[in-house]
């Protein structure tokens, strides 16, 4: 599909933000278009532009209404965004793939037995299905560096826990419905935890603090507890 033919609508989320809606249906193609538009807006910001926040099917643009230079800042900003969208060309560039090691040992996989039972599978099958997919980073949200990954095998899709954990350890890999994700920091959360990665998803000294970027691909591969501990030592200390 030619990206210039994409349909979208604008909604004023507040005095200083515009939500751009690309339609209800979630698709990787639509999401990649959103990231492409984000890049263009970041690279050539219009006066007053603050930041752009992608999600599954929407892009929200934040701006300073006083700096836009119009008596109707919302309309003016919409026009600038439409213009940016009109400059987009079909993007055939390859996404970056990040390989993430995960230890699925019981010690870290707090909910894996429940996930297996609820789906009528063995723990081994859950691991095979989780490592068998190439995931798409739809966006980063909920917590710093937390990736919302699409592409989960429907056979291991599992609803969130009835009541959230008060503290989910950093590195925990979880499932919520048809999504999978990784907790970069200790935080309360309701996802079903099936393993833990020793990799740090937050790089606080980097200009871009999130290891994963929207639009990246992610593949998980299983590691032993010994290997987990070795990598954790190297990564965090």
């Amino acid at each position: 599909m030619n990206p210039t033919q994409k349909q979208f609508s604008f909604f004023p989320l507040s005095e200083s933000s515009i939500l751009i809606d690309f339609g209800e249906e979630i698709s990787i193609e639509k999401n990649m278009y959103i990231h492409q538009l984000t890049e263009v807006l970041n690279a050539e910001p219009f006066p007053g532009f603050t930041e752009a926040v992608p999600a599954y099917t929407t892009l929200t643009v934040y701006y300073d209404p006083l700096a836009v230079g119009s008596s109707n800042p919302f309309q003016h900003a919409c026009t600038r965004i439409e213009h940016a969208a009109s400059t987009l060309r079909p993007d055939n560039s390859e996404s970056k793939t990040v390989e993430l090691p995960v230890c699925y040992d019981q010690e870290f996989a707090l909910d894996i037995e429940g996930v297996a039972n609820q789906n009528g599978l063995s723990v081994k099958e859950v691991i095979e299905k989780h490592t068998g997919q190439l995931y798409h980073v739809y966006f980063i949200g909920f917590a710093p560096g937390f990736p919302f990954l699409g592409g989960l095998d429907p056979e291991i899709a599992t609803p969130r826990k009835q009541s959230p954990r008060r503290k989910t350890p950093a590195g925990s890999v979880g499932i919520a419905g048809k999504q999978t994700g990784v907790y970069p920091i200790d935080t309360p959360g309701g996802w079903q935890i099936i393993g833990r990665t020793p990799r740090q998803l937050l790089r606080l000294n980097d200009r871009n603090p999130s290891l994963l970027q929207p639009g990246d691909k992610v593949r998980f591969y299983p590691i032993s507890k010994q290997e987990y501990l070795r990598q954790e030592e190297a990564e965090w200390h």
């Binding site: 984000t38 603050t50 930041e51 926040v53 966006f139 980063i140 909920f142 917590a143 871009n208 999130s210």
Partner: peptide, 9 residues
């Protein structure tokens, strides 16, 4: 802190 919402902050 502006400019980091897309990174989840």
């Amino acid at each position: 802190r502006y400019g980091y919402r897309a990174a989840g902050f």
